[in-house]
Design a protein around this nucleic acid. Sequence first.
DNA 1: TTGAAAGCGCTACCAT
DNA 2: ATGGTAGCGCTTTCAA
Lengths: 346, 346
Amino acid sequence: MPVTIRQVARAAGVSRGTVDRVVNNRGKVRPEVAERIREVINETGYTPNKAGKVLVTRKRPVKIGCFLPSLGNAFWDEVIMGLRAAEDELADFGLSLEIREIHGYVIGEHIEAIQSLVDENCSSLIVSTVDVPDVCEYINSVISSGIPVVTINTDLTGTNRLCYIGSNYLTGGTVAGRLLSMLSIYSEFPLTILTVTGSTMIKGHNDRIAGFLTSLNESGVEYRMVSVCECLDDEERAYDVTLDALREHPDTNCVYISAAGVTGVCRAIADSGLRRGGRIKVISFDNPETTRALIQKGEIDFTICQEPYRQGYQSVVSLFNYFLENKKRPLSDCFTEIVIKIKENQ
Amino acid sequence: MPVTIRQVARAAGVSRGTVDRVVNNRGKVRPEVAERIREVINETGYTPNKAGKVLVTRKRPVKIGCFLPSLGNAFWDEVIMGLRAAEDELADFGLSLEIREIHGYVIGEHIEAIQSLVDENCSSLIVSTVDVPDVCEYINSVISSGIPVVTINTDLTGTNRLCYIGSNYLTGGTVAGRLLSMLSIYSEFPLTILTVTGSTMIKGHNDRIAGFLTSLNESGVEYRMVSVCECLDDEERAYDVTLDALREHPDTNCVYISAAGVTGVCRAIADSGLRRGGRIKVISFDNPETTRALIQKGEIDFTICQEPYRQGYQSVVSLFNYFLENKKRPLSDCFTEIVIKIKENQ
DNA sequence: TTGAAAGCGCTACCAT
DNA sequence: ATGGTAGCGCTTTCAA
């Protein structure tokens, strides 16, 4: 039977209120009294019961704000499902979730949206935004003001965020490269690869390419990277750059898509008329409905995923527990698994 | 602001106690009064608050019993980590977990161990046991006595279990077959496959083989299955049967391990001296430490996993919520993902 | 600086 | 059959 605040109070010869002040560092306790209470707490191993806590703070529920650049990007659907599932599970324990979604990567808009969550008295934040100095500086100021922040899907380097929950992009690229080399081990021609990336400004995209190359080099498979084009995560642009590149390099037998624009790329491959019949291997990342359909049709060989549902679910649960445990246990980074999806395991 | 039992009572012109009786079907309420209360509940959308519930039932915490045939099988380590993580998270909300582990598959021992959990007043059970009539009948009698049961990892067909949380073995086999065929698409020799299974009595093992074959057939790759041997999940026996089979079929170029005994099989392959240098492909299931090491050494090409951690975590969380929500929302089966692991994404 | 008491939502118990 | 009340563990407020 776990020890309660009442037992601690009795043992220390004080009232529950005083113990509460010590436990939550509310001050106004004579040092020697505080010391005695702390001793009792250590001896008994007292930890405040979460259910009791939840009940009393019912009028000001723990409101977690969540910012995502998710509009117009189907990848985030599963993340949001995870967020909502956690909210659903914890609503009765005093959690409420405020999700702010925007389109694109205009820094000012990101900061503005995040600030609006702060203004609505969110007691903590879950954010996925661009890793640039302006944003990081802003985030650090938010953290300094007492609002803990968890980064999700994309980390913010050099901030004091509580933890990062998301994928290791470098490893994702490595897995893609290794699997490709396994698939090509008996192949007679050298791999001739076209890479379509989102932006060379985005670390995650670059990491995926770097890991991919490392892995190909290590495995000793013969390959040639004919071009790396940017599509800025735009389907139309993805179509155009892919088609141009394929016309310029008609010997291409593998297309590596390190970011969004997957549908555009696949359409371009089809329209190029090059080596149909499964000779052009296509590798992508993540698994929104559009990608899923392309895998089912055999237009993509495999896609590398990152547990988006768990990214959402986990971030909420972790942050909520962090609060309820008086911010005592620090949160550790959580790297979601690199999940290989083919037709059969979607 | 969610509606409380007090508000419902006031609106219906009765006391909280009466509302409680209606909500929890404790009887002793005049039908017309019950009807009026039910109306108010529907209008207001009242649901009992979980935190309040937890607090009052603190003296008789929800004790979940868990039975696993896990002794001596490293696969279960991660499942147990998941179970413990959930317990840790929910302990303050009144959850306690009683785990009973045994070695092997002697039916009487399974039933006895499960019964001991019932005897210790577990209010619900999580079990993984053998799917045979005797056990199913026993489980159904437990369920009839009011103790809900969740099956984990292995389902019990024809029981009234609340839900199954685990893998679809058939799909697992399908993924294995499909991936092998992708890997072998440029191969010059036909696949000559030796299958080492656990037991032809165990449905999961058979399903993995059936799915594997379906997949190979569909993909049109040329193959021959030279033999299917049983190792009864025993390393020594696995070594012996594999070595014998390889000697009898020295043209074998692929070994498919559908259950445990992985280490023994790999040792036999090495000792056979056949075609070393990566020519014998090895496919396994699950990813305990031993398998992990073999993948790192390149002795296994890939292994097909089933989210063991989540099997543990999810089963506890689901069952706990089921209780706290007055058993209202029925639980739906949860098929964990088929996760392909290669050297890079372990 | 400290204590006493009220109250969060719920259930259990006792009285009617 | 129904109502009233106490109490679960905690925080908050008011009084001392």
